[in-house]
Design a protein around this nucleic acid. Sequence first.
DNA 1: ACTTTTTGTGGAATCGATTCCATATTAAGC
DNA 2: GCTTAATATGGAATCGATTCCACAAAAAGT
Lengths: 337, 337
Amino acid sequence: MVDLGGINVTTINEIAAMANVSRTTVSRVLNNSGYVSEDARTKILKVIEETGYVPSQQAKSLRTKKTKVIGVILPTIKTETSGRLVAGMDEVLAQEGYQILLANTNHEKHKEIEFINLLKVRQVDGIILAATNVNDELLEKISQLNIPFVAIGQEFDGVTNVLFDDYNAARDMTRLLIDKGHSRIGFIGVDESDRAVGYLRKKAFLDEMKQAKITVEDAWVQKGVFNIESGYEAVARMFKDSLELPTAVFAVTDRLAVGAMRYLNQYHFKIPEDIAIAGVGASEMSKYVTPPLTTIDYLNEAAGREAAQLLINKITENHKGKEKVVLSYRLLERDSV
Amino acid sequence: MVDLGGINVTTINEIAAMANVSRTTVSRVLNNSGYVSEDARTKILKVIEETGYVPSQQAKSLRTKKTKVIGVILPTIKTETSGRLVAGMDEVLAQEGYQILLANTNHEKHKEIEFINLLKVRQVDGIILAATNVNDELLEKISQLNIPFVAIGQEFDGVTNVLFDDYNAARDMTRLLIDKGHSRIGFIGVDESDRAVGYLRKKAFLDEMKQAKITVEDAWVQKGVFNIESGYEAVARMFKDSLELPTAVFAVTDRLAVGAMRYLNQYHFKIPEDIAIAGVGASEMSKYVTPPLTTIDYLNEAAGREAAQLLINKITENHKGKEKVVLSYRLLERDSV
DNA sequence: ACTTTTTGTGGAATCGATTCCATATTAAGC
DNA sequence: GCTTAATATGGAATCGATTCCACAAAAAGT
């Protein structure tokens, strides 16, 4: 009878019995440890082959305290950014035999801590957090955590981080707009509790404008949330309240930028002739809107890979370090400016 | 001293010792089973509260054979479709206390079976497969599997499926184009080993054309893969080889459609005046390309929720049924036709 | 030829829970 | 007042592995 690779519910005890050895010896063969005679080894391997036996991760983990599972906490799973991040992590983790246990907070801050607890109970070997905010409770939780941990996207003191260079990226983009001859530049940001996207990018914009000695009208600086509709509304407010209309708008995410473009199209502003527009994120969409959107590519997959690699280093080498890795970015200048 | 919710590595034995009871009694309190005096209960709860004890899932699973983990096998994690699917599942699963263990095949067919094995070893309580193809080996594997299982997107005999109504959706779209007065209609499909996207949608297109007694030139029917570039190339081939150019093109995915639009824009065909175009998938991008793309919304999140719900039913009620749930769709008519 | 090492094997404890079974106490039934 | 049932508790087995320790047998050293 041919065994089609079905995994039967066999235990190490049965294998031991069938091979006429103790389960200790079977375990040695399984883990390639200690002394085992060639004789016993082949006999055991043969039985394993025949039965299709696979050791229970369950029992193994209970004893060894290792699960080969990494918990990944995300603010959402619906966006491209999350997808790319996870894809990058998975690429590295899968190679090392780890699997990803998902934890989706749906942007609810309190769930970040809840999930850290839950993942700890599940004995994951490590945790990667794609963070959207920094708060003391979370920082406290992380620093007292005795599981290898890496945060992506926000800087936590005393924690290993993979960071995007939000500040310089946003300054570069602002400078690009200035270099293109714009002096009235609008800005669409998000709440500053998101230090990376909200605070740093805004600060970079204002710093660069200040350095260029360009004044920024209050109404030109608007705040939105992470969706397209919000970009539309932000630019609507901007245009309604401005004394003088801006000739360029820098939005801190592509979605906000695309929302802004919608508004501009609707009211027949020409892009980039009347108003230039720029975003951040290099979403797939950004390439196919009309005109193609100038944006910044943050290389999210690379970030995922980097985070996974750092985590694995911490796990395997018991690396206690708290590295800060700042990833590079690419400014993609397209027809919208 | 205030305990900040840190989970300490306490075991049920220590709790038992501290509360002066046996671990059996502690277990009873934990699981709300059997008889426990109010006296003992409060004493135990107090100790649990003080220590922040949380039982080890590890040990629990070993004994109970339940992990509260669902394995989700995906062809990719980078696309919106996957993201939405997973978001939908997570919504339902999280509510029932399940977490998702990701398995990303990267479109490698053989990995589907590998992952089913791996997930089985990990003792997941159920598996959801977002399938891209149907083959005998896989079907065999699934049917001999004794873990609750749900497949999304492809029909497997004797298995619970959540299906999209690919055939009728594609017929509807074809009919829409015909109704708009087109008689020369091009088609961009994918390989028919993907029965849903490749085979059914093509069959629907051809059936509808046949019913309308419209002939289809060979060159009008092209095949691509799942990316934008491929749509561009497909329409390029179509236009090069056609005796007479089509006046409309139906692509089986939005990406293919967007690629086609790129080509049309580049060669200054006006959409929809010169050539109408339609896709499938209702990607976010489809709404913001110019002109907005006519497409079909498959309600992926709903599919994810549905699959998760079916799986939970199977798990909790030991439901042996093999339901087929066919989801509805919405045809989104926008400016591209 | 006798001690020391290396090699090979199995018994038993352990990981941290659940659960069956036995037993003690108390309440209810008649 | 005596039997039966409900309540309460703990001992011990179990889940399926790993690993420490003891102990033979074979090989090496002197």
